Simulated assay, not measured.
Amino acid sequence: MSENVGTLFCGVGLARRIEGVETGAIAGAVEVGMRRGTGGFVRAFGDGAACFAGVGSPLTKVVGVGFGGAPSVGEWEEVERAYAEVGAPVQVELAQLGDSRIAAELTGRGYRLMSFENVLGIELDGRTWVGPEQVQVRRDEGDEVDVWLDVVVDGFAHPDEDGGSSHEEFPRAAIAEVMRDMASANDTRRYLAYRDGAPAGGASMRTDGGIAALVGAATLPALRRHGVQTALLSARLTEAAAAGCDLAVITTQPGSKSQQNAQGRGFSLLYTRALLVKEV
């Protein structure tokens, strides 16, 4: 089943719920690295968290702020000092539906708007989705984790040129470390897609509080435009519904092929995050 059964409306309450799940996922992955001895920190900040997993890590950012009031000037100064002490710029992911005072505060403090990302969602309602027959998707139960990691890292190392671009570019080693830590944290499931018997793509899904976050989807460059992402999306949506989740969400670059695929499967655009950065 792939029909759009109606546009999903997102108010502040739903955005708060989604941002809380995202905060827990990022903080959990950073804590996995910390237990491995790589250093880092996770600081509760407002209703979100300030996370550091190393300079240049995709997990080094402030997430989830804006739904419990605007942090004070002193609180921002404390977070900025924490990042300055480790030599990292401060990156803030700010949801459009959060407290509007925060964006004005940050621009006044010298933060620059770098890019945007879209959060899309779909109500699951116990439905099932059918993917293309030429692509087989199976869940990795641990015996294929190295294959999964190679596929998703290769896919992310060669970003699709369709759609809007991101200011973020990360080395292969940083991507691999983050993907491994994200897959080890929280309630995360890994999936591999095969075409003609060979690995073609991979993805993950986290479930928390009735929300399925569809993350880490990547296709090998030579096998793009062959239904791999559609197959991975369909498999995860069906499993999320079977697991009792009421909502699935996905984050994409605006105007990207990933956003097009998601909306073609019935996702609605819920809100946008602005990515703001202040250099140390």
Score class of each variant (00 low, 15 high):
Ser2Asp: 14
Glu3Phe: 14
Thr7Tyr: 13
Leu8Ala: 03
Phe9Lys: 14
Phe9Ile: 12
Ala15His: 13
Arg16Trp: 14
Arg17Glu: 13
Arg17Tyr: 02
Glu19Ile: 04
Gly20Tyr: 01
Val21Ser: 12
Ala25Ile: 15
Ala27Ser: 12
Gly33Arg: 04
Arg35Ser: 15
Arg35Tyr: 12
Arg36Met: 15
Thr38Val: 13
Thr38Trp: 12
Gly39Lys: 00
Gly40Met: 02
Phe41Glu: 10
Arg43Trp: 14
Ala44Ile: 13
Ala44Ser: 14
Phe52Glu: 03
Phe52Ala: 00
Ser57Val: 02
Pro58Val: 10
Pro58Ala: 13
Thr60Ala: 06
Lys61Met: 11
Phe67Asn: 06
Gly68Thr: 11
Ala70Phe: 02
Ala70Gln: 10
Pro71Gly: 09
Pro71Met: 01
Ser72Phe: 04
Ser72Asn: 09
Gly74Asp: 12
Glu75Phe: 00
Glu75Arg: 13
Trp76Met: 03
Val79Asn: 02
Glu80Met: 09
Tyr83Ser: 06
Tyr83Gln: 03
Ala84Gly: 15
Glu85Cys: 12
Glu85Asn: 10
Ala88Phe: 05
Val90Glu: 05
Val90Lys: 07
Leu94Met: 04
Gln96Pro: 07
Leu97His: 09
Asp99Lys: 08
Ser100Met: 09
Arg101Trp: 04
Ile102Met: 08
Ala103Leu: 14
Glu105Lys: 09
Glu105Met: 11
Glu105His: 03
Glu105Pro: 11
Leu106Lys: 07
Thr107Asn: 00
Arg112Ser: 10
Leu113Asp: 03
Met114Ala: 04
Ser115Thr: 02
Glu117Asn: 15
Asn118Trp: 15
Gly121Leu: 04
Glu123Val: 10
Asp125Cys: 13
Asp125Ala: 14
Thr128Ile: 06
Trp129Arg: 09
Gly131Cys: 06
Glu133Gln: 03
Glu141Val: 11
Glu141Gly: 05
Asp143Lys: 08
Asp143Ile: 08
Asp146Ile: 05
Val151Thr: 06
Glu161Tyr: 08
Asp162Ala: 13
Asp162Leu: 09
Gly163Val: 06
Ser166Thr: 07
Glu168Cys: 05
Glu168Val: 11
Ile175Pro: 01
Met179Ser: 07
Asp181Ile: 03
Met182Arg: 14
Thr188Arg: 07
Tyr191Leu: 12
Ala193Leu: 10
Ala193His: 01
Gly197Asn: 11
Pro199Cys: 00
Ala200Ile: 00
Gly201Trp: 02
Gly202Ala: 15
Ala203His: 08
Met205Lys: 04
Arg206Met: 14
Thr207Ala: 13
Asp208Val: 12
Asp208Gln: 05
Gly210Arg: 01
Ile211Asp: 00
Gly216Met: 05
Ala217Cys: 15
Ala218Asn: 06
Thr219Ile: 12
Leu220Thr: 04
Leu220Ala: 06
Arg225His: 01
Gly227Gln: 10
Leu232Met: 11
Leu233Cys: 01
Leu233Asn: 11
Ser234Tyr: 04
Thr238Ala: 01
Thr238Gly: 02
Thr238Val: 06
Ala240Lys: 06
Ala242Trp: 05
Ala242Thr: 00
Ala243Arg: 01
Ala243Val: 06
Cys245Glu: 01
Leu247Met: 00
Thr252Trp: 11
Gln253Ala: 14
Gln253Arg: 15
Gln253Ile: 00
Pro254Glu: 09
Gly255Phe: 05
Ser258His: 06
Ser258Ile: 11
Gln259Trp: 09
Gly266Arg: 04
Ser268Leu: 08
Leu270Tyr: 09
Tyr271Gln: 13
Leu275Gly: 04
Leu276Lys: 02
Val277Asn: 08
Lys278Arg: 14
Val280Glu: 13
